Simulated assay, not measured.
Amino acid sequence: MNLEDIRREYLQGGLDISDLDENPFRQFKTWMNIAIEAELSADPTAMILATVNSEGIPRQRVVLLKHADEQGFLFYTNLGSRKAQDIAENANVSLHFAWLPLERQISITGKATKLSVAEATRYFLSRPHESQLAAWASQQSSRVSSRQMLEQAFEQMKNRFKKGEVPLPSFWGGYRVVPTRFEFWQGRANRLHDRFEYLPDGEGWGINRLQP
């Protein structure tokens, strides 16, 4: 199979500045709601989180967005993970949402700040019991000799917390990404895609069309 021959046209629609909300958070919410209602996949809230460590090495992974408002975008993780280590060294991150069946993408650049223990606890206690146990069992990003070792750790946590509430691990928490830039992308025919950038302009957000 020749990968160069795989292509398609983007014909679902266009995007003009008059279609956009002046507030990028509201525009994000509109597109997110459309993606959820379209039932495009099992994970419409999936986003690529890109980090760069102190050596300038970039890393990406898919995480799930758990809350979004004008204060920022929230996700949760093990605080000893590679993503958390990268953020401790360099708080600049980017988020990327790709809803390809809708021919839409959103890119967000911003700074990640750690959530308070109270905020992390509130979310942790809302998770399914098994997910709470998995957070305790996994030393995320650390090497493990076998799948069996991981499953044994999970069973140990089941026994440890078989009675009562599972508490928040001290090594688990969340981050809020505070945006400094948004880009909304809509596919168009002939690769003349529509791209609009939101940047702070002192009083709110300015919007600029970008060439594809």
Rank of each mutant, 00 (worst) to 15 (best):
L65Y: 06
K163S: 15
N190Q: 14
Q71L: 13
I34A: 13
G204W: 00
M157N: 10
E4L: 12
H67Q: 14
L79A: 04
T30C: 03
Q12Y: 05
Y175V: 03
G187Q: 06
P24Y: 04
K66E: 09
L40H: 06
E151R: 11
L3R: 15
V166I: 15
L199Q: 08
I207A: 07
A91L: 00
L3A: 14
K114N: 00
N92S: 06
Y198Q: 01
F154Y: 15
T109W: 00
N90C: 08
S170R: 05
A46D: 10
S138H: 08
S18V: 05
K66H: 11
D86H: 08
H193T: 11
I17N: 02
L40G: 02
P200R: 05
Q156M: 11
L64N: 09
A38L: 06
K66P: 01
N208M: 11
R160L: 13
A35P: 11
L150C: 02
A135C: 06
E183N: 11
F28R: 06
L11T: 15
L125C: 02
A91H: 03
R82C: 01
A91N: 02
Q211D: 06
P169W: 04
S170W: 01
I48C: 12
N2Y: 10
D19I: 06
A91S: 07
L192H: 11
Y76R: 04
A98W: 13
A98F: 13
Q152A: 14
E165D: 15
T113E: 11
D19L: 00
S126Q: 14
A112W: 01
S142G: 00
F73W: 01
F154M: 15
E9L: 14
M149G: 02
V63M: 14
L40K: 01
D194P: 02
Q27K: 12
N2E: 13
L74W: 09
G202A: 05
L115Q: 00
W136F: 14
R160W: 04
L65C: 11
A68Q: 11
E197G: 00
L102H: 03
P169T: 07
V117E: 13
S107N: 06
I48M: 07
